[in-house]
Design a protein around this nucleic acid. Sequence first.
DNA 1: TTACGTGCAAACGGTTTGCATGGGT
DNA 2: ACCCATGCAAACCGTTTGCACGTAA
Lengths: 137, 137
Amino acid sequence: MPDTDARPSALRPTRQRRAITDALANAADFQSAQEIHDTLRRTGDKVGLATVYRTLQAMAESGDVDVRHNPAGEATYRRCSDSHHHHLVCRSCGRTVEITGSAVERWAHAVADEHGFSEVSHTVELVGLCAECARRQ
Amino acid sequence: MPDTDARPSALRPTRQRRAITDALANAADFQSAQEIHDTLRRTGDKVGLATVYRTLQAMAESGDVDVRHNPAGEATYRRCSDSHHHHLVCRSCGRTVEITGSAVERWAHAVADEHGFSEVSHTVELVGLCAECARRQ
DNA sequence: TTACGTGCAAACGGTTTGCATGGGT
DNA sequence: ACCCATGCAAACCGTTTGCACGTAA
């Protein structure tokens, strides 16, 4: 039987994919592909680096995970709907403070609605000068 | 003679540096180092790619410009205090809508103040599914 | 004249891709 | 059996770095 509608297709539940999903589930924060690969190796799951990249990319495309880039330019991933926070980073010393702000969350949804967008996730990053570095300069 | 701990600071006002500053001033949005390099070549300013990278890096470090990473992972730069906007991006087709929201600006400053941070700049990125792509899926 | 700034090209490192094999359906 | 998923390694590409020369101070 010819399958109706050739959707990009559902991903196959392979051992590797499950391992990656688990790693993401256990991660508290954004993880780079390489970090995830390292984690898997440590837990004994043998998964090729290319597979990690391809899988994360696919999951990102289908909206299963959020992507962002860390200051080093590496792509990092986090499973969606994670209760998440944002970061306030000192541009001088790199000191980081975690921020939670329901205000931004509401704003993000309002803006998305206004433009007909759905399933919105957001990334917010505040960069400034921490009190200590400001004093030193 | 033992050098008296030379400080790196105090950038010299060279032709190249001025060209890069000008390019940033004329740019309406975040530009990658390569885009800036292309712009300079087009306007006849001969500046080495490495110099563009080094200069932008120095300017970012000293807080003269803001850095962010585009979806492709490239570092992009924008001169500070630019009247700026944010982006609402469709994760499926890449369609982008420019957003201006004074609400976030206020929130960013409030949060920074609360933690003793100054000279804050912020990056906000909303990723979702645009109406058209949502319909198609 | 003395470093810093620059240009060039080679080196780097994260990510992607070609191809042959393995495994889900 | 069919074909997507995987692994490996080479290819890619943005960015960084070593070194010799140019140039502001």
